[in-house]
Each structure stands twice: as structure tokens, then as C-alpha cells.
Amino acid sequence: MKRILTRPLTILIAIVASFVPAGVATAASAGPIFRAAQVVGQDNTNTETNLDFLFAIYIITWAGFFTYIFIVSRRQRTMEREIEGLKQLLSQRQSAEKG
């Protein structure tokens, strides 16, 4: 259990999950983005029109980082298993030779 909790992927999933209530809370309380949109709206500029671009920027950035960290941590686990196997095999051969 402790092993699962300390895995980088678990921590990253926890980070992503924690964004959900924050996002809901922000939307519900009409946070500064929306308030600012109203303020700037007085200057005939609709700031909300580019929200999809902003969304894409943040999604791509975090997806890129999470995918990379996931791939690296999985590769590390595979390597650790392979090292362990090779060490065992080598020590078995050496002890068989001596025996």
C-alpha cells in the first residue's frame, strides 16, 4: 500500500484529481477570469473568446509532463526488475561453478 502511495504516478493522479474541485469552485464563484471578462467587456473586448486556446495550452503542457514522467518511472521499474534478475542469474552461475 505504501509502495503504491509513494509511486510518482499515484501522486500525479492525485494532483490532477485535485484540480477538479478547484475548477468547479472557481467556475461556481465566477472567479477573476469571469469578473475580469466583465470589466474588459466594458471596453468592447470579449476576453472569453480565447478560453479554448488557453485550455489547450494547459492541457497539452500537463499531458506532456505527466506522460513523460509516467514513461520514465515505468522504464525505471522495468530496469530494476531486470537488474535484480541478472544479479540473481550471475550469482547462481558463480555458486554452481564453485560447487
Binding site: I15, S18, P32, A37, V40, D43, N46, T47, N50
Partner: peptide
């Protein structure tokens, strides 16, 4: 790092004002 990232995200989407000319996309 995760805590720092969360604080940063809160600052970006909740705390910092929107730039007047570029609008919301300036948060990029």
C-alpha cells in the same frame, strides 16, 4: 513540487488579474 504547482495554478486562475489588451489568453 506538486504543492507548488497547485499554488501556481491557483494564482494563475484565481488571483492574478486579466491583462486588459490580450484578455484571458495572456494567462498562457
Amino acid at each position: 513540487t506538486a504543492v507548488l504547482v497547485l499554488v501556481t495554478m491557483w494564482m494563475i486562475f484565481e488571483w492574478v488579474p486579466t491583462e486588459r489588451n490580450l484578455g484571458v489568453v495572456q494567462r498562457a
